[in-house]
């Protein structure tokens, strides 16, 4: 068993274990912190997939931004010194049935399909130059649209969250 495999299984266990805690934990705050480790594990998997730039982006945007936002949401919408922090589950039976069906189908398809494996997989030290090139040539229009979407989301979120209630 070489180092690559060991690190892969390490990050896989971190990701899936934390995701399980996120899904099944009764406490919202535990879930939010488990989500941190799940996202961190996914960033490690990106490094194993030779996507160093995306791994850093994942850490900055998800762990640094979205997770803090989620924690804000948790703190502002639950009564911290109350039992309200506990959250219940609903529709357990259909949810478990759908979970089993869905994961079975997806894993079965992934397992049985004979995916095309390229002769020369990506194996470069740094990906940022190529990604930057593609963002400014092939994907220029989506890139610009994404910037507008972020601006609109920023203004919209501020307006929705700050709206004063009348009466």
């Amino acid at each position: 068993m070489d180092l690559y495999a060991i690190i892969f299984y390490l990050f896989a266990v971190i990701t899936l274990g934390s995701a399980t805690i996120v899904v099944f934990s009764k406490n919202v705050v535990y879930s939010a912190f488990a989500l941190l480790f799940a996202l961190f594990g996914v960033a490690g998997l990106y490094v194993l997939l030779m996507a160093d730039f995306l791994a850093i982006t994942q850490l900055l945007v998800y762990v640094g931004g979205i997770l803090v936002l989620v924690l804000f949401g948790v703190m502002l919408t639950t009564k911290v010194f109350d039992v309200q922090m506990k959250t219940k589950t609903i529709q357990m039976v259909p949810a478990v049935a759908i979970l089993g069906l869905l994961s079975g189908t997806i894993v079965g398809v992934f397992w049985s399909t004979d995916w095309y494996i390229s002769e020369n997989p990506i194996d470069v030290a740094k990906t940022a130059p190529q990604i930057g090139n593609m963002l400014l040539t092939t994907y220029l229009l989506p890139f610009e649209i994404a910037s507008v979407v972020l601006l609109v989301a920023l203004i919209g979120a501020a307006m929705i969250a700050r709206r004063e209630r009348k009466g």
Binding site: T15, A32, G73, T87, T89, Q91, P94, L99, L102
Partner: peptide, 21 residues
């Protein structure tokens, strides 16, 4: 396979959790 399991867990959270967050 890993991403398939992760996806299923995410769908499970969306279906079964009460809290919107």
């Amino acid at each position: 396979l890993l991403s398939g399991i992760l996806f299923s867990l995410g769908v499970f959270a969306v279906i079964s959790r009460k809290n919107a967050i």
